[in-house]
Amino acid sequence: MASGLDGRGVIVTGAGSGIGRATALAFATEGARVLIADLNAESAGAVVKEIEAAGGTAVAVTGDLSEQSVVDQVVATAVERCGGVDVLVNNAGIMDRMSALGEVSDAEWERVIRVNLTAPFLLTRAVLPHMLAAGRGAIVNTASEAGLRGSAAGAAYTASKHGVVGLTKNLAVMYRDQGIRANAIAPGGTATGMIPDIDGEAHGPKALGPYFGNVGRVAQPEEQAAAILFLASDAAANINGAILPVDNGWAAV
C-alpha cells in the first residue's frame, strides 16, 4: 500500500536532531511538505537545507513549544507554507536527571512536564481545528519505554511519558469518528544526543541501574522514524490509539 503522504503537510517537532531529524527526512522522501519545529535555529535550518538539497520542501520555525505564541506560529506557518496540517508528529522532548520522586526539584518537574507533555497538548489542540475541517488527520506522539513501565527513567520523565500515552489514547477515542487517528511509538534505547544530567550518588540512578540490563540493542533514529512514518501513513489507516514499542523486545521482558 502506498504511504499516501505525497503532498501532505507535516509538522515534526524536535526535528533538528535525533529521531525528529530522521523523521523529517523520511517524510520528505515520501513527498510530504515538512515543517521543522525545534528550539535550535541552527540545527533546524540545517535539516531544511538537507531536505531542499534532496529536492524536498521544508520550512523551519524555532522556539519553545510550551509557549502558545510559538505554537500559533508553527501552525500558521504550516498552513501557509505546507498547505495545511495533515500530520502532526509530537517528538520534541527532554530527559530528567533520573531523580527519584523524593529528589525531584520543582524546577526539574515543571520543565520536564512542560516540554514533554504540555507542549504536545498545546500543539495538538492547535492543529485539531484544521484536521477536523479537513475530515482527516494523523497524530503520532513519541512516548517512551518510560511510558510503559516505572523502571526506565526518573519520576518526572516517567510521569510525562505516561501522560503522553494517556493523551494519545484519549485523543484516539474522542476523534475517531471525525477521521483523526492518534498513535504513539515507545522507543527503547536510541542513539540520539539526549544525554541525562545524572547525579551518580543520588538514589534514583542507583535504584534504576539494575534494570538497564534489559535494554538490549540500541536503535538508530531511522528505525524510530520508520515506525512513525508507518503510523502516519495510509498503510496504518485502521490503527488508532496504539502505543507501539520500538525497543527490540524490551517491553516484552
Rank of each mutant, 00 (worst) to 15 (best):
V59F: 15
V74N: 01
V74L: 02
M98Q: 12
A76P: 03
N90S: 15
R111F: 05
G63I: 11
E67T: 08
I94R: 02
V85S: 06
V74Y: 03
V104R: 00
N91T: 07
Q68P: 07
T77S: 15
R111Y: 05
E67P: 07
I113F: 15
D106R: 11
G93E: 11
T62N: 01
V74G: 00
L88R: 07
N90Y: 11
A76M: 12
G63T: 07
G84I: 06
E67S: 12
A100G: 00
V115T: 14
L88I: 01
W109L: 11
S99F: 01
Q73S: 03
A92P: 12
V87P: 14
A58K: 06
D72C: 12
Q73N: 06
T118S: 13
L101A: 14
D64M: 02
T77G: 14
T77H: 09
C82R: 05
L88A: 11
M95N: 10
M95L: 12
V115H: 01
V70C: 08
I113A: 13
D72L: 14
G84V: 08
W109P: 02
E103W: 06
R97F: 07
G84D: 09
L117Y: 08
V75F: 03
G63Y: 01
G102S: 06
T77V: 13
L101V: 15
V87I: 10
E67C: 08
V115E: 02
V115R: 00
E110Y: 05
V89W: 15
T62Q: 00
S105Y: 07
L117R: 03
R111C: 10
V85E: 13
R114C: 10
I94K: 02
V59R: 03
N116S: 06
S66G: 05
A60I: 01
V74H: 02
V87D: 15
W109A: 11
V89H: 14
Q73P: 02
R111P: 10
G84F: 01
A100M: 10
E80A: 15
I113C: 12
V89T: 04
D106Y: 07
L101G: 14
V61Q: 00
A107G: 06
L65E: 04
V115L: 05
R81P: 00
N116L: 11
D72Q: 13
T118E: 13
T118R: 13
D96P: 02
V59T: 08
A92S: 13
S99Y: 01
A76N: 12
